[in-house]
Design a protein around this nucleic acid. Structure first.
Length: 285
DNA sequence: CTAGGATCCTGTCAGC
DNA sequence: TGCTGACAGGATCCTA
């Protein structure tokens, strides 16, 4: 999915475009993608747009919150009277006429229309009482954000998974919030740690470097604007590739490593495609 | 309890 | 061209 930096970019975009505006109507095109009664959001004003890990929280004035999780292929696309915005899984739906085949829900607002698109239907919109957000099964288990978690707490969480490969461990949202397949690979490259290393074999210094790596790569992505309209379509109309703005290994197999010149390869770890520089990231220490 | 694989779903791409 | 299998920016469920 959209990982923490993409969701944060979307949060900022929605805060600028739809916060303080009223939802005038909701259309559900795929029942599976919308959990709870839509009547609770109709005619409500948006009072805040928050984020916890990869989950977006849109608070309404009646004490109801819409939790949106984009999972692998979710997108939020806003077509406003004055402003437009799109973020999430980058596809042509950012620029296509909407709704399209992958539109699952439509929110009509006073100042435009917000489309929830999701090719694979793993994502969802879920209606909750704002006071119950913290008790949601996903939210309550979520670990702290990369910038809030201490080294000690990160290490303690890691050590509940001593024999698992380190990549699988940091993808677990109960260990640290917000990491997905891109930033797992990027952070491990930053810290020069092989993704298959047993979690329990990491030294204190490696754990320190890893946490620093997570923070650094995510911040760089947020600063570059994540996956949005701006990075998807360049000013001259040609297609951009936002990954190239910050990614050192992700989808760069066959290219030279920026640090040592070795060739980046793609392997499989924890059932996920994984990108490494085999000379910077040794499996045995 | 953890670890690892299957699973949800649609679409694309490589290989025959 | 048509088919087939692998794979995909996630998380949960099931089994060992």
């Amino acid at each position: 999915m959209p990982e923490l930096p993409e969701v944060e970019t979307i949060r900022r975009g929605l805060e600028k475009t739809i916060k303080t505006y009223r939802i005038t109507n909701v259309k559900i095109l795929c029942e599976k993608s919308f959990v709870g009664p839509k009547t609770l959001v109709k005619n409500q004003k948006i009072i805040d747009v928050r984020r916890k890990g990869k989950a977006l929280l849109i608070d309404l004035e009646n004490g109801v919150t819409m939790m949106i999780h984009l999972r692998m292929t979710g997108q939020l696309i806003f077509r406003g009277n004055k402003e437009i915005f799109a973020g999430g899984h980058p596809t042509d739906s950012f620029i296509n006429e909407l709704p399209d085949k992958q539109t699952r829900a439509i929110f009509e607002l006073e100042n435009g229309v917000l489309y929830f698109n999701d090719q694979r239907k793993f994502g969802f919109v879920k209606i909750l009482e704002t006071s119950e957000v913290e008790n949601d099964d996903f939210i309550k288990k979520l670990a702290k954000e990369p910038w809030d978690i201490s080294f000690e707490e990160f290490k303690e969480n890691l050590m509940h998974h001593k024999t698992a490969p380190i990549k699988a461990t940091i993808l677990d949202q109960k260990v640290i919030a917000g990491i997905g397949n891109i930033y797992a690979d990027e952070a491990l490259f930053y810290a020069k740690i092989h993704p298959k290393r047993e979690t329990g074999s990491l030294t204190g210094n490696e754990i320190k470097e890893l946490l620093e790596g997570v923070r650094t790569v995510m911040q760089a992505s947020i600063d570059s604007g994540g996956s949005t309209m701006k990075t998807y379509v360049k000013a001259d109309g040609t297609k951009g590739d936002y990954l190239r703005l910050f990614a050192k290994v992700f989808r760069r197999e066959g290219e030279p490593c920026e640090r040592c010149g070795g060739e980046i390869i793609k392997i499989r770890v924890a059932g996920r495609g994984t990108h490494i520089c085999p000379s910077c990231q040794k499996e045995e220490k």
